[in-house]
């Protein structure tokens, strides 16, 4: 059952540490079988980019995203034998949600809150008068919009709208009832819409399309 498998993700050791948590990995020969190694390699190759991207959208700063991704896979490696093959993705995201929460807390003091003044003060984010929104700029803006959302809503939003999880999967992954998932998503969309429209107004005001 997924619930049992994800409890490991609550380990205190999940807090982001500047030092890689290499001590969590048992490097001794024979600690993992060749088949487990192969499975792990496949898992990392298949999901690394997805996990990294999800962590970023869940609020992990770019500078910490590599270490956070590493942490997700290290936890997964420790629990490989209890991860059901068909639930690998859910399991990884379950860990990622918790790793991201820890990372956000660690970086909370430094994170800038989304507001119009901050946005206005970021010329690199706002296109020049005759320039348009580049993808990277859109991504920065998107992250600011996500930053403006409450954590629980942001998590549901990212996992459903960006990562494509179904409601039932979200219910298992977040360990909340299906009805709660739905209501959380509805509120998340409202919050996203409100923040996005605010960002749009600022963007238009500060140049946006060439007038």
């Amino acid at each position: 059952m997924f619930r049992a498998a994800t409890t490991s993700a609550h380990d205190p050791g999940l807090a982001l540490d500047p030092e890689p948590v290499a001590e969590l990995v048992d490097h001794r020969p024979g600690a993992r079988s060749a088949a487990q190694d192969a499975r792990l390699v496949k898992l990392v190759h298949a999901q690394y980019d997805n996990v990294w991207r999800a962590l970023r959208r869940l609020g992990v700063p770019e500078a910490a995203a590599d270490d956070a991704s590493q942490e997700v896979f290290i936890v997964a490696a420790r629990k490989l034998t209890v991860i059901e093959p068909e639930r690998e993705r859910q399991y990884l995201y379950g860990i990622a949600v918790r790793v991201a929460a820890n990372a956000r807390r660690a970086c909370a003091a430094r994170r800038e809150q989304f507001d119009e003044h901050a946005l206005l003060a970021m010329p690199s984010v706002i296109p020049e008068s005759d320039a348009l929104l580049e993808e990277k700029q859109a991504r920065v803006l998107f992250d600011q919009v996500l930053d403006a959302m409450p954590e629980d809503l942001r998590t549901a939003f990212v996992l459903f709208e960006i990562e494509g999880f179904a409601l039932r999967e979200l219910s298992e992954l977040l360990e909340i009832p299906l009805g709660t998932v739905s209501s959380r998503l509805r509120r998340a969309r409202e919050a996203f819409h409100e923040a996005a429209q605010r960002a749009k107004r600022v963007w238009l005001k500060t140049g946006g399309p060439h007038v």
Binding site: H27, L40, R53, E135, A138, L141, F142, V145
Partner: peptide, 27 residues
């Protein structure tokens, strides 16, 4: 506008070298 924001993440990718680092850390 919202669609542009949502799509902006689709090709967000880790820097080269991040994945090998993780593989190495996993032994």
């Amino acid at each position: 506008f919202e669609r542009a924001l949502l799509r902006s993440t689709q090709r967000d990718a880790p820097p080269a070298g991040a994945l090998p680092k993780t593989l190495a850390s996993l032994g």
